[in-house]
Amino acid sequence: NKFNKEMRNAYWEILHLPNLNEEQKNAFIQSLYDDPSQSANLLAEAKKLNDAQA
């Protein structure tokens, strides 16, 4: 299933973003579980936030 793979990839990438705190990571990961079809968008948002907090 495409979403499972996308979701897993997004999950791991978000988990390893160095500039997000636990609360931010948890919020993105919760959103992933709530709507796996948004994995790519959530990952993009997480990366933007990560870069902004660098």
Rank of each mutant, 00 (worst) to 15 (best):
I14A: 01
M7S: 04
E45N: 07
L43S: 09
Y33D: 02
A52N: 13
K48T: 10
N9R: 15
N19K: 07
E6P: 03
N41A: 09
H16W: 10
N50V: 04
W12F: 14
Y33G: 02
F3V: 14
L20E: 00
A44M: 14
N50K: 02
L49K: 10
K47I: 04
E23P: 12
I29E: 02
D34W: 08
D35K: 07
A52K: 13
S31L: 06
S31R: 11
E13G: 14
Y33S: 03
Q53M: 12
N19Q: 11
L49P: 01
A44I: 13
D34L: 13
P18Y: 08
L42I: 14
A52M: 12
D35A: 08
W12Y: 11
I29N: 01
Q53N: 13
S39R: 15
N4S: 02
L42R: 07
A40D: 03
E23T: 07
L43K: 09
P18M: 09
I29D: 00
L15P: 00
P36H: 04
L20S: 00
N1T: 06
H16M: 07
Q38S: 08
N1A: 01
Y11I: 15
S37Y: 08
S31F: 09
N41D: 10
A44N: 10
K5H: 04
K48D: 10
L17G: 00
E13W: 13
P18A: 11
Q53L: 12
A40T: 12
L49R: 09
I29L: 07
H16L: 09
K47H: 04
P36I: 02
W12G: 03
Y11L: 13
N50S: 11
K47Q: 07
E22Y: 10
I14L: 06
N21I: 12
A52R: 11
L49Q: 15
Q53T: 11
I29F: 15
L42G: 02
D34A: 14
Y33V: 05
Y33W: 09
N21V: 13
D51P: 03
E45D: 10
A46E: 00
F3Q: 03
N21E: 04
L15N: 06
W12A: 04
E45L: 08
N26E: 09
Q30G: 08
K47N: 08
A44W: 06
K5D: 12
Q24V: 05
E22R: 15
N50T: 02
K48S: 10
K48N: 11
K2E: 15
D34I: 09
L32H: 00
Y33I: 06
K25G: 03
L49H: 07
Q30D: 06
L42W: 14
Q38A: 11
H16R: 11
R8Y: 04
E22H: 14
S37V: 10
